[in-house]
């Protein structure tokens, strides 16, 4: 019994780990193309992302927004919903946090920061509620609507950041938020900030909500089998909307963290596809908070190490984008991975 349990767990880890290994192998072909040694390039990547306290801080800083987007996407997945809208949600959340941050200069930090964070979450949650409601009430596929709402969010924030909330400088960005609304830096010179604690809290809260509350039970029931859930007296529509709201609220914290912790202001189109990489994080982390954490750290390390690799070798940093795309594809093609790794014979 115990053995069976353990082998089951190792099989569960097989696909994520196999996918990462396979993606790195494909990546090494690209490294060879530019005439570098893959082993050397990957060594640089590893050392520069984990080799010193400062490097680890940099990795964690890049992991922080990915924890939020990955967790948000994973939450929706648990309810059977595909939230491709994390990118738009984080822009809306970040923008609202910035607006609160540049207003109300006379509030004490103890009040200003929580309001900015909460308002950003609320905005992201409401933004995600729209596709949730359209799915629950009219049966419209949430994938298309979340994609469409990404673009609405881009143009809306483009408008706000170049129009009403354009800062004093020429660049398309808001003014700096007041110090009372800033997520403080920890471990400078890295830009790691207290947002990482918020991310840990979010991981724990999502775990508790999903597995220790009635709401979480209902959401997962809807995700596993909506008709059975409905038959069992669970409102599918209500839980779908709720799952989208929570998903959007969590994902939007990525934007809040970038604005209040990293840049100190809203910068037009600041996100390097954080919302889309969040999909990769959720898939690789098997939609579980613990998995999401490790997947986010991996992707954060790839970003940090990739930038260093760009500086120190001839390999462009876009290699890590290619690797990330490969990981998504391979994780989803679990049949392929299982085929490549021969099943261990039963002893």
């Amino acid at each position: 019994m115990e053995l069976q349990q353990r082998s089951l767990t190792s099989r569960n880890l097989l696909v994520p780990i196999g996918s990462v290994v396979l993606a790195l192998l494909v990546g090494s072909i690209f490294i060879l193309v530019v005439g570098e040694n893959p082993l050397y390039a990957y060594r640089v990547l590893l050392v520069e992302s984990f080799g010193s306290i400062n490097n680890i801080a940099g990795t964690l800083q890049r992991s922080t927004p990915l924890i939020f987007t990955g967790l948000g996407v994973a939450f929706a997945f648990r309810c059977g919903l595909f939230n491709i809208g994390a990118e738009g949600q984080l822009y809306v959340g970040g923008m609202v946090a910035a607006i609160i941050g540049v207003s109300f200069g006379n509030l004490p930090g103890l009040i200003h920061l929580p309001i900015a964070v909460f308002a950003g979450m609320l905005a992201g949650g409401l933004w995600a509620a729209i596709p949730g409601i359209l799915k629950a009430k009219l049966g419209v596929h949430e994938v298309i609507n979340t994609i469409m709402m990404n673009f609405v969010a881009y143009y809306l924030t483009d408008f706000l950041v170049t129009g009403p909330f354009h800062g004093g400088r020429w660049a398309p960005e808001t003014d700096r938020v007041f110090p009372t609304a800033v997520l403080e830096r920890i471990l400078p010179p890295s830009r790691l900030n207290t947002g990482i604690f918020l991310a840990i809290v979010a991981l724990v809260v999502v775990y508790i909500v999903l597995w220790k509350t009635k709401t979480g039970y209902e959401i997962r029931a809807v995700g596993l089998n909506p008709s059975a859930a409905e038959y069992g007296g669970i409102s599918v529509a209500r839980n779908m909307v709720l799952a989208m709201v929570i998903s959007g609220a969590v994902a939007s914290l990525a934007g809040v963290e970038q604005v209040l912790g990293v840049h100190g202001r809203f910068i037009q189109r600041f996100s390097p596809d954080l919302g889309f990489i969040g999909i990769a994080v959720a898939l690789l982390g098997k939609n579980h908070p613990v998995g999401v954490f490790f997947a986010a750290v991996l992707f954060g390390a790839l970003r940090t190490g990739g930038a260093a690799m760009d500086r120190l070798t001839d390999v462009p940093r876009e290699l890590v984008v290619i690797i990330q795309a490969m990981i998504i594809m391979f994780v989803a093609a679990d049949e392929l991975i299982r085929r490549l790794v021969p099943r261990r014979r039963k002893a």
Binding site: F30, F82, I84, V143, D273, F276, I277, I279, A280, L283, P316, E318, L319, V320, V321, I322, Q324, A325, M326, I328, M329, A332
Partner: peptide, 17 residues
Amino acid sequence: VVSGTAINIFAGGFTVF
């Protein structure tokens, strides 16, 4: 949808690479 997402991310990285 996952495959399409992966393709979009890949193309963005690949073309710049």
